[in-house]
Simulated assay, not measured.
Amino acid sequence: MMTAASSERIGVIGLGAMGMGMARRLVGAGFAVRGYDVRPEAMAALAAAGGEAAGSPAEAARDAGLLLVMVVSAAQAEAALFGPDGAVPALPRGAVVILSSTVPAGSAVAFGERLATTGHLLLDAPVSGGVVGAESGRLTIMASGSPEAFAKAETALAAVAAKVYRLGDAPGIGSTVKAVNQLLAGVHIAAAAEAMAFGVRAGADPRTLYDVISNSAGSSWMFQNRVPHMLDGDYTPRSAVEIFVKDLGLVLDAARELRFPLPLAAASHQLFLMAAAAGLGREDDAAVVKIYERLAGIAVSRPEEEAEPRS
């Protein structure tokens, strides 16, 4: 792992499951990390990990050469950067904003243009890999921005990611590629839920079904990662239903502007909307399987201790 100089400071705005994992990795890499989140318990957790809690986005940005933004939406990113007590006026000129939130490509472009007028650089750098990837420093980063921004952010990116893709010299391309990833991820989760529910309704044992499909052509990374949540009935949110309501909504918005049909993404979005409407929005995204369970009167969940012993 590349190690930062002990004096190198990075601000982090957004200490949710992903942002906290990334912040801890940066602390471990030798950065002086000052973070802000609207939840006091998140800032206390950062302080316990060796970082410093900030009282506002502006305080997080003060004296920082890099500012990592990992919030939920473009609106939150706008507020964190340019709102009252926002980060940008306090951020030293020449500093790089690493925008790792999933936002529309147009928003990333607009943020880059606006930051250029204030003397700052933007790296459009959304991530994939989930909470486990954030905590282990094994994220995939889909980034676009100027060579200067990449050079300044190189050590920080190496601390949190296993792969960093340089997709272009301007913001927007990174967010476009992330939209493609989220389209596939959402469709794969929805398909995994539908397939497992279908198999159980037809009489298959859910754990055996999972084992067989995991070693067959119908498997996917999402199938192997999310179906265990369904089998255990564990819907502690690693990534929530509401995240895919938002992300697939962004995908469909972009497609509508392009006049490009996305029937599979649209159907998957409807499933996530159904789950949110049923009160499951804050549960793990694998909870979309509960829609099928309720419709068919079945249970996909089968804790390991209830499974039949194998001969």
Rank of each mutant, 00 (worst) to 15 (best):
Y235D: 09
V251I: 09
M230T: 03
L231W: 05
A255H: 03
E257R: 07
L231A: 09
E257Y: 02
I243F: 15
G233T: 05
A266W: 06
A254F: 04
A255L: 03
L231Y: 05
A267W: 04
L252K: 07
M230Y: 10
D247M: 01
V245M: 11
L231Q: 03
K246C: 07
P261E: 13
Y235Q: 06
L250S: 06
Y235A: 07
A254W: 01
R259G: 11
S239W: 08
V241H: 01
T236W: 10
P237D: 12
D232H: 14
D253I: 00
S239Y: 09
A240N: 05
R259Q: 14
V245D: 11
A265N: 02
D247S: 04
A240C: 14
L264M: 15
K246F: 09
E242N: 15
P263R: 05
A267T: 12
A266C: 09
D234Q: 08
E242W: 08
D247A: 02
A254Q: 07
A240L: 06
E242D: 15
V245E: 15
R256G: 10
G249Y: 12
R259S: 14
D253E: 15
D232S: 15
S239D: 10
L258P: 01
P263L: 06
S239V: 12
V251R: 00
V241A: 05
E242M: 10
Y235S: 10
A255Y: 04
L248F: 08
R259F: 04
S239K: 04
K246R: 11
A254R: 02
L258V: 03
A254G: 13
D232W: 11
E257V: 09
